[in-house]
Design a protein around this nucleic acid. Sequence first.
DNA 1: CGCGTATTGCGACTCAGTCGCAACTAAGAT
DNA 2: ATCTTAGTTGCGACTGAGTCGCAATACGCG
Lengths: 126, 126
Amino acid sequence: MTAQRRAILKVIETASKHLDASQILRKARALDNSVDRSTVYRTLDLLKRQGLIDELDLMHLKGEGHYYERKLGRDHIHMACLRCGKITEFVSETFESLKTQLERDCRFHIVVSRLEVGGYCAGCRH
Amino acid sequence: MTAQRRAILKVIETASKHLDASQILRKARALDNSVDRSTVYRTLDLLKRQGLIDELDLMHLKGEGHYYERKLGRDHIHMACLRCGKITEFVSETFESLKTQLERDCRFHIVVSRLEVGGYCAGCRH
DNA sequence: CGCGTATTGCGACTCAGTCGCAACTAAGAT
DNA sequence: ATCTTAGTTGCGACTGAGTCGCAATACGCG
Ligand SMILES: [Mn+2]
Ligand SMILES: [Mn+2]
Ligand SMILES: [Zn+2]
Ligand SMILES: [Zn+2]
């Protein structure tokens, strides 16, 4: 456990929204200005492999990069509005059953799952 | 409708597996050797916007690129084995209900949805 | 045919992510 | 407290995916 990892971890833990790698770098540097871009990517890989964070595309609404968020108990679905860009999260019991069903029917042991939806939010539908 | 688009379209239509942009370029060139990389990307964007193809990450098992597949009537789930890399597809009625439920409960009009799962397949679980 | 608009190829570019390597550090052993 | 070493870091160079501006070309319509 290094100072750099502590900084990166704190940024992710206290984030109020989904952050991409360069945002994480910027915020981590505010805590420990020695943090390097490579270290951010290496730490992100580590946390991903440990199952502590999830990686998201958010429909690639802006650019090709990825977003990260702390993985808590229950998974959630991400909805991205194609018009206003708003990201909404939703916890669904049906989603949980779907995963259980998948594990049984396909004899597949799920480690990570990602349901992302693009469309139009209540304020933008037409 | 240009010769280049016809070639790219035919490649996607007759694909037996998920192809990335560079594979599509290579195969399209075999049909029409004038096809350029930019045209592949532009056509892919077009087909995405028309809702004719889906874009997939396949858990970024190999590299950062994206994969494409023709969108047919029913959506399906993609499962990627983290050990052997096998991709399995699965059609689920529960998935369909989940989307319907989402549209109702969140007042969100779904245009595109992507459920990708990473884990261990029957042959690789431990 | 001609014509105007949409599309293309090209080359240069951006941006996300990766890698090899030498310097450094955390943390366990003595 | 110091030694040791395996793991981690910063740096800089690199890759690979995807984008863009522009001049040349081709589609499709009258
Ligand atoms: Mn989230
Ligand atoms: Mn992606
Ligand atoms: Zn919206
Ligand atoms: Zn497998």
